[in-house]
């Protein structure tokens, strides 16, 4: 049996760890609340964007746009969004598993893959696997500013329009609700798949206001679609970064809460062990005095 001093040292260490995990939980809970507010605030924007895209692509006149067409390039781009810090459950492991699937699939079909990554954990994993990264995003913390998203999105759109990439997929943890988050791949380019995703994720897709009335379009449908497609790509990338950060913090809150509970439980168990050991020592000393033996 461990000595009382050893038990006390261990309990102190466990309590210290508990304090650290509790602080991490609190910090992530605050960040989560901030991002959640942002996420709920933007929901209506994405719904309306989806409705506009739906109205334009279901118009009588078919729209042909470079970002809509398959450009037959044999190189795909993957934007992987992980986290900079660990201790957030299987957040990064799920992203890494999905990237592995994409890399294996590309190898099997003889395609090239350009990987762009955000998040130290994912970057470290890919480097360990010997996968060359095309670019990493270090100039922002978790969620990029509108200007930074614009630069990232414009770069991908230019590459797609020039035929240097045939697809752009974002691998991230999607935040469906506080009860559901899942690592998934969102196909951003060509935008046809993105429109499909946006229109099916929109919470209100068939309201009364979506009746097929005649619209005056200013400028022409093609020009509107050009701007709309760019806005969709930018907004989607922005949403991906936000949802990834949101999911990361929620997963960390859950993981750290469990860790804090376990630490409390373990400290309680160590307290019981300590009391038992202390009592055993007292009893032993008493017995020694009573029996008159010296050990």
């Amino acid at each position: 049996m461990a000595s009382t001093r050893q038990i006390l040292d261990r309990r102190r260490a466990v309590r210290d760890i508990g304090k650290v995990t509790h602080t991490m939980e609190t910090v992530s809970a605050v960040r989560y609340q901030q991002y959640y507010k942002k996420w709920t605030g933007g929901e209506q924007f994405y719904d309306t964007l989806a409705q506009l895209a739906y109205l334009i692509v279901t118009a009588e006149k078919t729209i042909e746009h470079p970002l809509m067409l398959d450009n037959k390039s044999d190189c795909n781009a993957i934007l992987a969004i992980g986290s900079d810090r660990g201790l957030c459950g299987a957040h990064n492991a799920n992203i890494c598993r999905l990237i592995d699937v994409h890399v294996d699939m590309a190898r099997r079909f003889g395609k090239k893959v350009k990987i762009y990554a955000k998040g130290a954990k994912v970057i470290g994993y890919l480097k360990n696997r010997g996968i060359r990264l095309r670019e990493t995003y270090e100039d922002f913390d978790e969620v990029p500013s509108p200007r930074q998203v614009q630069v990232i999105a414009d770069d991908f759109m230019a590459q797609y329009a020039a035929g240097r990439i045939g697809r752009l997929a974002v691998v991230y943890t999607r935040f469906f609700s506080p009860a559901s988050q899942r690592a998934q791949t969102l196909m951003v380019l060509p935008v046809a798949e993105l429109i499909d995703d946006l229109t099916t994720r929109a919470t209100v897709i068939w309201p009364w206001e979506l009746a097929f009335e005649d619209f005056l379009l200013s400028p022409s449908a093609e020009k509107i679609f050009d701007s709309l497609a760019k806005m969709m790509v930018r907004a989607s990338l922005s949403a991906c970064f936000l949802e990834a950060a949101l999911s990361e913090h929620l997963e960390r809150v859950v993981a750290m809460r469990n860790a804090t509970d376990n630490a409390d439980e373990m400290a309680g168990e160590l307290t019981r062990q300590y009391n038992r050991a202390r009592q055993a020592n007292i009893t032993e000393e008493l017995l020694e005095i009573v029996s008159g033996t010296i050990t």
């Binding site: 334009i56 619209f215 005056l216 379009l217 200013s218 020009k223 509107i224």
Partner: peptide, 14 residues
């Protein structure tokens, strides 16, 4: 610049 008042025609504008 474009002005909008009540009962404006349905429009989608950039």
């Amino acid at each position: 610049f474009r002005g909008v008042l009540r009962n404006h025609a349905p429009m989608l504008c950039k």
